[in-house]
Design a protein around this nucleic acid. Structure first.
Length: 480
RNA sequence: CGGAGUGUGGCUCAGCUUGGUAGAGCGCGUCGUUCGGGACGACGAGGUCGCAAGUUCAAAUCUUGUCACUCCGACCA
């Protein structure tokens, strides 16, 4: 393969300045741009199309597990938001309020939903009566608003698009099982469709969602070695049911509180796609999620027959079920190649006079820039193979990167040193005390507990910081 | 919420110190020559200088106020 060469000057090198690289890729791939309101993005066609594909794939996976979609309002009365103590304490600092209706001040102000647990609970408290009404396994696709102080496209915006699933169940076990089921749906989706390998597990007390009994998370590792929480699944036990008085009568006509879960994945995941797969030439999209899987690029298209042949090729690929586009603009070929690479389109098909003469096309992989000469007669099947190979290779590369950036430490000094030399996740034992988490964060310049994985290893019997008996092995990392 | 910075054609910015005809590059439009890794020429369109007051014969430029955005921290998906 040809030596990595920087072809595009409008994108800052990833090594030189990762943050600037990220911003450049977002801009050059035309995913979104800044609106006039801080933290609120204009999602452009290229960015929104990715979200639409994420929605389609996830929604299908949800429905396979019995999820039904609903839609609840964007406004939440203040009294409702305050019903559960931890929840309001967690969200109060970052909600926006609607105080006027037209010209008149409102009697009670409404917040713009930061999340909708309270709305779902309010509805269920009025409608659920019998065990026959359970379970409810609902989800909504919507946007929410959180008044963030620091914002970045996709990673942290004030308004963001997401899905939020909310469920209630008759038993503790059933709700707990749903929490894990959804964690696994996220895990499978992100790994299989987005080609992003993950570390998964339970959050510590301090990292839990406001009001949750347990929070489970999928954590991905970005190319700069920072972690990104990419989806969460929460188990609430009876907390919300009690606060909202959601009770049902069982078969013996005895009243019980329901058990509740919620789970969400947002447009933040687009940031993960960019930062896991992108390179110095721009975005690299996994074929399964890419809005366009291949772009036909006619070379010397002014010459007799080239454009016709290219269009014919596009149409036959479309008919074969591929998502395919063509760049028949009057730009030069070099410009078109760069454009296709910045947009992250997984393959391009170059077709020029020489190819037509030889009854062939040149398929170029976005991820490796490898050129593959394919006979025109075989392109419909070969393209599928190439796309599948790209999908697999992208995951394998990201997995190799992840694996090589997971290390372990038994002392705080060792932990610090590893964060400095090989950024990523560090496995270390922990006593379970919140105070120790704080100390570790301070001592490492910002590393937080990312999760307690289900598969525990015993690296030591002592906490990495205080030396007291260890309770858990924890993945630590510096997070976005 | 602290610290810093920036608002001038679609974009990136110069001009401001020392007030006096609104500038450049890129992009955009038309035409022509090009075309296997961001081609070139000619002509052309496009600006309430963030907003508001003030000083002045005269304000992009000076003064005051105000709004917005960006970056870095603390806080969070």
């Amino acid at each position: 393969m040809a030596k990595e060469k920087k072809l595009v000057e409008s994108i800052t090198s990833r090594e030189e300045d990762f943050a600037q690289w990220y911003t450049d890729v977002v801009r050059e791939a035309k995913l979104c741009d800044y609106s006039g309101v801080k933290g609120c993005l204009n999602y452009l066609p290229n960015g929104y199309a990715i979200w639409e594909n994420i929605q389609a794939d996830l929604d299908r996976r949800f429905k396979e597990t019995g999820v039904q979609n609903v839609y609840l309002p964007v406004l939440i009365p203040e009294s409702l938001l305050q019903r559960e103590k931890d929840h309001i304490e967690g969200f109060a600092p970052e909600v926006a309020w609607v105080t006027h209706g037209g010209l008149e001040p409102l009697q009670e102000r409404f917040c713009i939903r930061p999340t909708s647990e309270t709305l779902f609970c309010d509805h269920w408290s009025k409608t659920v009566q019998s065990h026959r009404d359970l379970p409810k396994v609902w989800n909504q696709w919507c946007s929410v608003l959180r008044w963030e102080k620091t914002t970045r496209p996709f990673l942290r915006s004030r308004e963001f698009l997401w899905q939020e699933g909310h469920t209630i169940h008759a038993t503790y076990e059933e709700a707990e099982e749903r929490t894990i089921t959804m964690l696994n749906v996220y895990k499978d989706f992100v790994q299989d469709d987005l080609a992003i390998p993950l570390v998964t597990g339970r959050k510590t007390e301090s990292e839990k969602f406001a009001g949750a009994q347990d929070t489970y998370t999928i954590e991905a590792l970005m190319h700069d070695g920072k972690a990104l929480q990419s989806g969460t699944s929460h188990f609430f036990g009876n907390t919300f049911a009690d606060a909202f008085d959601i009770k049902y009568a069982d078969k013996n006509n005895e009243l019980h509180s329901v058990y509740e879960t919620s789970w969400g994945l947002s447009t933040r995941i687009i940031g993960a796609i960019i930062m896991v797969h992108g390179d110095d030439s721009g975005l690299v999209l996994p074929p399964r999620i890419a809005p366009i899987q291949t772009r036909v690029i006619p070379v010397a298209q002014h010459k007799e027959g080239v454009l016709d042949k290219a269009t014919e090729l596009m149409n036959s690929l479309k008919a074969a079920g591929y998502r395919v586009g063509i760049d028949d603009s009057d730009k030069g070929p070099g410009w078109k190649f760069s454009e296709q690479e910045m947009l992250g389109i997984p393959t391009r098909i170059e077709i020029g006079p020489k190819d037509i003469e030889n009854n062939q096309v040149v398929v170029v992989r976005r991820d490796t820039r490898e050129k593959i000469i394919v006979s025109m007669d075989e392109i419909e099947t070969k393209l599928g193979d190439i796309l599948e190979t790209i999908q697999k290779d992208m995951f394998d590369r990201a997995k190799a990167f992840l694996d090589s950036h997971i290390s372990s430490a038994t002392t705080i000094e060792e932990m610090n040193e590893k964060f400095n030399t090989n950024r990523g996740f560090i496995k270390a034992m922990w006593c379970g005390e919140e105070a120790c988490e704080e100390e570790i964060k301070a001592a490492t310049g910002g590393a937080t507990s990312r999760c307690i994985p289900e598969e525990q290893e015993c690296l030591s019997d002592k906490c990495v910081f205080c030396g007291k008996p260890a309770k858990h092995m924890v993945y630590w990392g510096k997070a976005y």
